[in-house]
């Protein structure tokens, strides 16, 4: 294999994984817009949805039933998260309350998953394509599964953009994000929009779980937390609250990770990502596309 081909393959793999990171970052953005809350239990949501779908599959249900079923449950969890773990805590001036409670709910899902499905890794079946299916583009062998993930992640993000920018509900969401009281005066049910944003965010977590699981091949109750932190890195790289940033940050992180993995050591992949998180937060917490917030006295 030529060195160029090797590099291109790394970049391609990085883009695929990165697209999923973008989806996760997008999930943070949506709740951040409406409530300035970032769900620290997002990771276990990702894990839990893929676990649910896997267990439905193992019960013999087809994909077409398992996935909607998994999504419905995860959306319901998003609703529960907002009502019980966030809304009562938004009245406090500091974020410590909701950080701790969202994290708590996430860890609860993680513990619940180990209780139900055990702590060991479970094999997740490939989706539509077989793990061995390849597509050849410009002489590079690309995994069909990876390609599918990339395309789906991009399509979903495009869809989200359209919904938010072109539909009245999307505009209402932006309105609530900008000024919830003014939105109420305009007749928009701000609280409902906030709840809705958590349900959509949970759905995005579920989608990310279903997409990443076949790439990983196996899933464990812990994998959500790890991948969530990578989602943080993606979101922070691009700037929290920015859709463009989420896309860019995710893809960039994916590529960096895979290049580090390919040329330095696979075991350093995640370590590098965490290092990027700390450095970006320290140097440029608004990321590359974020909006600087003026401090209020």
């Amino acid at each position: 294999m030529s060195s160029l081909q090797f590099a291109l393959e790394l970049i391609f793999t990085g883009l695929c994984v990165g697209a999923v990171y973008s989806l996760i970052a997008h999930g943070f953005n949506i709740t951040f817009w409406t409530t300035k809350v970032v769900n620290f239990g997002h990771g276990p949501f990702i894990m839990f949805c893929s676990m649910l779908v896997l267990s439905f599959l193992m019960k013999g249900l087809p994909w077409i039933v398992s996935i909607p079923l998994g999504f419905s449950i995860i959306i319901l969890l998003g609703y529960i998260l907002e009502r019980f773990s966030i809304r009562p805590l938004l009245k406090y001036p500091t974020s410590m309350g909701w950080i701790v409670s969202t994290l708590g709910l996430g860890l609860f899902l993680q513990a619940l998953a180990s209780k139900i499905w055990g702590a060991q890794a479970l094999a997740f079946p490939p989706f539509i394509f077989q793990a061995t299916d390849y597509v050849s583009i410009f002489g590079i062998q690309l995994s069909a599964q990876y390609l599918l993930v990339l395309v789906m992640a991009l399509v979903i993000m495009l869809l989200m953009e359209v919904i938010i920018n072109k539909t009245i509900w999307g505009k209402a969401m932006k309105a609530v994000a900008f000024d919830p009281n003014f939105a109420r005066v305009m007749g928009i049910k701000s609280k409902m929009v906030m709840t809705l944003s958590f349900m959509i965010s949970a759905l995005l977590a579920g989608v990310a779980g279903i997409l990443i699981a076949p790439i990983y091949g196996t899933i464990t109750p812990e994998f959500g937390m790890n991948i969530m932190v990578l989602g943080f890195v993606a979101a922070v790289l691009g700037g929290i609250g920015s859709s463009k940033g989420a896309l860019f940050g995710g893809l960039m992180l994916g590529v960096i990770e895979k290049l580090v993995g390919g040329y330095i050591s696979t075991s350093a992949e995640h370590g590098v990502a965490f290092l990027i998180l700390i450095i970006i937060l320290a140097l440029k917490p608004d990321g590359f596309f974020g909006v600087k917030v003026v401090q209020k006295v």
Binding site: I168, K171, A172, A175, A183, M186, G187, I188, K189
Partner: peptide, 8 residues
């Protein structure tokens, strides 16, 4: 203006 109109 759309937002001013739609929900009310």
């Amino acid at each position: 203006l759309l937002l001013g109109f739609y929900f009310r």
